[in-house]
Each structure stands twice: as structure tokens, then as C-alpha cells.
Design a binder for these strands. Structure first.
Lengths: 152, 152
DNA sequence: CTCAACTGGTAACAGATGAAACTAGGTACG
DNA sequence: CGTACCTAGTTTCATCTGTTACCAGTTGAG
């Protein structure tokens, strides 16, 4: 057998498949959130995380949501403007503030969360729990190995 | 048990996990291609598809790569400018042209492809063929079910 | 103390992206 | 064959995203 060029079928290339699938899913979710609640993804993520642990700094929120601090800042400003999130001064550190949900934010969260789970079910339904667990495990390890390559 | 609010842990929310993992992978790949070959993802995708089937229209390339026609147009222009791709007039339809790799484009492809596969192996290595096949299968079905929800 | 280095958050800028308008060419039907 | 509609590709524009610069506040070494 002679040298032989490497051939690569794009449709078989996993990073490509992953990207396409993820973009489709993100876009479907983004459309739904926007239409239902006027929230962008970043805003929704903040709400979800703040609901779990009130009184976080933006710093902490960025780490929890894997979002850039600029993205977090913008989303936080938007949420405060809409009266969904409140900022309290942080006694420990005057540069930062602690974010928590207002009553309205809490209400919104309580109507968004079920919808989110429903959407997830709609998209990821039709898979067995085992399949999903395996999928999740692959995602976890991928995240780690990709981050190792690109220590952004 | 009383009504009980729905709780949602962001880290357990699959669309979120998928998005984070995919972004990490895409970013690692984009960085590598840019550094090694000065190619952006869209350009690399076009090269890969043209290499498989010379003489395609941009229309066809868009379908094959799931990219917007604007994205395809820009990537095509960049590749032509760099002398990697050539446009031949399409006798059947004067509005479009047929794209093929120049000798330089072919050379580049032949050095990019192995690198791409190596990167893929680096990121997706450590999984068994079975795991990868299952993962791929989930991606396929996801793509379909998300597209159905968001008929963009 | 105080000065240098550092960190949380915002603002300003720049590149990327996609929708919509536009141009040139194609198709259908009288 | 002419006119109304359709499509390939490009350009324009408005938006989004992230990098960099910036300001205010914090920390630590001397």
C-alpha cells in the first residue's frame, strides 16, 4: 500500500458534529426563553445560579456559569434594570456587591424552571437514563480535555 | 408533600453542559487551526468539504456544512484571496460558480487533515469506540429533535 | 503608614455573526 | 418574448461577544 492521503469526512468529524448539535440546541433554547420570558441565555443562567445560592458576587457567578466576567456584568445589569435581581453592598469588599433575586425574580424563576425542564425533556427525551448518563459523562471528560489543550 | 417548587441545578441541566463542552472544544480547535494554518473554522470546513467533492456551488457547501450562506460567502472569498480555492463559472447557472481546491489548497488540505484527526484524537481519546459511537448517536438525534423545535 | 501590585466590576473598542436588502441571473406562464 | 416571481451570492447594517483598558477598592511588603 502506498503512502495514501489522509481523508477526512466532515460528517464523521466529532468536533464538527458536537458543534452543530450544540448550536441547534442552544438556538432552540434561546428562542424559547426569549419568546416566553424575554430572557437571554446568560440572564437565565444567572437567575438559575442565584436561585440556588443567594448573595453571590459576580465573580462567583462567573465561575459557576463558566461565563466571562463581562458577560456576567451585562446580564446582571439587565436583570437589575428589570427588577429581577437586587444588589446589596458587600461589607467584606466594597468593590463587589452581592446579588440576590427580588420577589419578582423569584417568581420568574419559579415559572422558568419548570419550562426549562420541560424543554430539556422535549429535546433529550427519547433517550434512556443510561444513554443520558453516558452522554453526560462524555461531556464532562470532554470539557476537561479540551480545556487542557486550550488553557484560555 | 406540599406543592414544592421546581428546582433546577444548572450543572445538571443538559443543554448547559452541552453548550459548555462544545464551546470548549470549538475554542480549542479554533485556536489550533488559527495558529497552525491561519484558518478559521468556517474556512477549514469549506476546504474539507470541497476536498471530498470538487466543483460544488456555495449553496451546496452551505448545506453540507450547515453554515449560513453569508458565512460561506465570506469564507469562500477569503480562501480565493489566499489562492487556496478557485472559482469556475457554472455553465448551468451564471449566478453561481463551482469551487475547487487549487494545488496550494490541496496541499494545505493534506497537511491540515492529519492534524485535525490528531486533534480529534487528543480531545476524544480516552473513550472507547463504543462510547464514541453512542455519543455520536445521541448527537445525531439531538440535532434532529432540536431542529424540529426551532425550525429556524 | 505608603506605595506597588492585584482584583471586582464597567466601559470602550473591534471582530464576528446573521437578518434583511440588493444585484444579477433564471424560470414559468400568458 | 415579456413580465412577474424566484434563487445564488454579496453587501449592508444592527447586534453580540470577547479583549483590552480603566477605575475604584484591597492587600501586602517594607
Amino acid at each position: 500500500m502506498t503512502a495514501g492521503k489522509t481523508t477526512l469526512r466532515l460528517d464523521d468529524f466529532l468536533p464538527y458534529r458536537l458543534s452543530v448539535a450544540s448550536n441547534r440546541v442552544s438556538s432552540a433554547i434561546a428562542t424559547a426563553y426569549q419568546a416566553l420570558f424575554g430572557l437571554r441565555i446568560a440572564e437565565w443562567r444567572l437567575i438559575a445560579v442565584i436561585a440556588e445560592g443567594q448573595g453571590m458576587t459576580q465573580q462567583a457567578l462567573g465561575a459557576a456559569t463558566r461565563m466571562d466576567k463581562v458577560t456576567v456584568s451585562r446580564a446582571a445589569i439587565a436583570l437589575v434594570d428589570r427588577g429581577l435581581v437586587a444588589r446589596q453592598p458587600n461589607a467584606q469588599d466594597q468593590r463587589s456587591h452581592l446579588l440576590s433575586l427580588t420577589a419578582a425574580g423569584q417568581d420568574l424563576y419559579e415559572s422558568v424552571a419548570p419550562k426549562a425542564l420541560e424543554l430539556e425533556a422535549r429535546i433529550f427525551g427519547g433517550f434512556s437514563p443510561k444513554e443520558l448518563a453516558a452522554f453526560r459523562a462524555v461531556l464532562d471528560r470532554l470539557e476537561a480535555s479540551a480545556a487542557a489543550l486550550d488553557p484560555e
